[in-house]
């Protein structure tokens, strides 16, 4: 399709925009519009759309601006909370990674120095003896006797703390997703 514009198009458009068409235009321009395809199209389409706009705006029932302001405020609040939460989550991940690296490093160091607990055989035996040992601890604790093995209590406390920490992290991750 060849783009053929007319020199009078601008004038016709202005007249329509001002609402002066066809009353305030010269007879020459009116004659030109009835003969020119581009100007004729412009008048036909512009008048139809302007009338359609008037009808549509009359039918519009916009909601209260207060509702939109409230929704926008709520969304900004959520976005701000998300922005704040992001570095906290990053810090938690970082702390967890540091703890893991430290634990692995400590275990590796101990294994290199030949610590008994850092070997696989030690844990296998420990697991095998665990039910008897736990029963013995329970008997001792329930009878009120002081436990001489402070080391065992420390291991248990560390394990419980790790478990709690990991559970918290798991719950946080699950909620976040």
């Amino acid at each position: 399709m060849k783009l053929t514009s007319c020199a009078n198009e601008k004038e016709v458009r202005e007249l329509i925009t001002r609402g002066c068409w066809p009353a305030a235009c010269t007879p020459e321009l009116r004659a030109h519009v009835s003969a020119c395809r581009a100007c004729g199209d412009l008048v036909l389409v512009a008048q139809a759309f302007r009338q359609a706009r008037a009808e549509s705006t009359a039918a519009a029932r916009p909601v209260s601006p207060a509702l939109l302001l409230w929704r926008a405020e709520l969304r900004r609040h959520d976005a701000a909370m998300e922005r704040i939460g992001r570095p906290i989550f990053g810090a938690q991940i970082f702390a967890f990674a540091v703890m893991l690296v430290a634990a692995l490093g400590f275990a590796g160091l101990e294994a290199r120095e030949g610590a008994a607990w850092a070997t696989w055989a030690f844990w296998r035996d420990w697991l095998a003896q665990l039910p008897q040992a736990a029963a013995a601890h329970w008997r001792g604790w329930s009878s009120g006797a002081a436990d001489t093995s402070g080391w065992s209590w420390m291991v248990l406390a560390a394990a419980a703390a790790s478990l709690l920490l990991l559970s918290g992290a798991a719950i946080f991750l699950a909620n976040d997703q």
Binding site: R53, S56, T57, P65
Partner: peptide, 22 residues
């Protein structure tokens, strides 16, 4: 800002709705 927005909304909402509807 809220007042300015309310005024802007009153002047623009209907024409925006007409545009979106059509």
């Amino acid at each position: 800002e809220k007042e300015a927005f309310a005024a802007f909304y009153a002047r623009s909402a209907k024409s925006l709705w007409a545009y979106l509807t059509r």
